[in-house]
Amino acid sequence: MVQIGYTMMTEQAGPRALVNDVVAAEQAGFDFSVTSDHYFPWLESQGHAPYAWSVLGAAAQATSSIRLMTYVTCPTTRYHPAVVAQKATTMQLLSEGRFRLGLGSGENLNEHVVGAGWPAPHVRLEMLEEAVQIIGELFDGGYVNHHGTHFDVDNARLWDLPEMRVPIGIAVSGERSCAIAGRHADLVIATEPKPELLAGFDRHGGAGRARVGQVPVCYDPDRDAAVERAHDQFRWSVGGWKVNSELPGPAAFDQATQYVRPEDVAQSVPCGDDVREFVEAVRAYTEAGFTEVALVQIGGSHQESFIRWAQDKLLPALRAL
């Protein structure tokens, strides 16, 4: 049976609201939660970008059973991989074994803030693989020294290691990222229901491991209001990964999506309160082979009503998948 997750989307809510919402999601019966790790929102209308790791620490203390995961953290530019490893093991201890570390090659939107420039895609993937190797070595315990193509580590050691090693997930969008995930990841992450991504993960050693997807939705009893909100806050998603990873800020996303219509967004995002439409969006992932699917409810102030509706109607329908 597919596991259904709830997304703490840091781009659309402040830190206290995010924690309160994940507490409600746990009580409603969601199986796991994922958390975006952004320095900027995609669009100014979203209006938020708190520090994801502080939110996760608070969520670990406020909840008791729901699993937590970054979706995803970039361990190459804004953060050094040795620091990401320390944060992840701390989270695993705070959550008593409920944390998974989702990693990806990042977006210019968030990583440009440190002024190090934004590398070409093939360089970003080289950096990601080297970072994952460093993180894995630190998870193994002992001192780590590393002098590689992109990173240096000088006599680092994690002093607080959890009994349960932190599982690593890697986000994929093409053959090369699938190869990195197959070699190094305990689970694969994707935001599109493409069977070929999972097949690529399997070809490189990922067969039998968990695979996690994510679906944006916009619940509202008033479908027109839902479509309007989805267009206002989520039209950035229609650009595709190759575009979205390169644009530097909310103003660029606003300009790039100026001709996207509400009906264009509604074609890819379930809007309203028709349970069947939401179920079909998730079914696309389960039929592709995903074992876990996280829902993103669009609109930071619309989480409470969505969670209540999901508990009463949506989650029971999704359990039948």
Rank of each mutant, 00 (worst) to 15 (best):
N108Y: 04
N145W: 03
A62W: 07
V23F: 14
M9G: 04
Y143H: 08
Q12R: 03
A156K: 02
A60V: 02
N244R: 15
R157Y: 14
T7Y: 01
P193M: 12
V153P: 12
G200N: 06
P195E: 12
R176W: 00
E192C: 00
C271P: 11
A181Q: 03
Q3P: 07
Q3S: 13
T286L: 03
P41T: 10
R235L: 09
P121C: 10
A288V: 00
A58G: 06
R98N: 15
A179C: 02
I135S: 14
E163Q: 12
G249H: 10
P121E: 00
E228P: 02
D140W: 02
A320F: 09
P250F: 08
G299T: 15
P50K: 10
R100D: 12
L318G: 06
F40K: 00
Q12F: 12
A60M: 08
L314I: 04
G29V: 13
N110Q: 05
A207T: 15
E96V: 01
E263S: 15
F201D: 02
R229P: 10
K194W: 07
M8N: 03
F278I: 11
L295K: 14
N155D: 13
G115R: 05
V227D: 12
H38E: 13
M127P: 05
S105Q: 02
G47Y: 10
V23I: 04
Q233I: 00
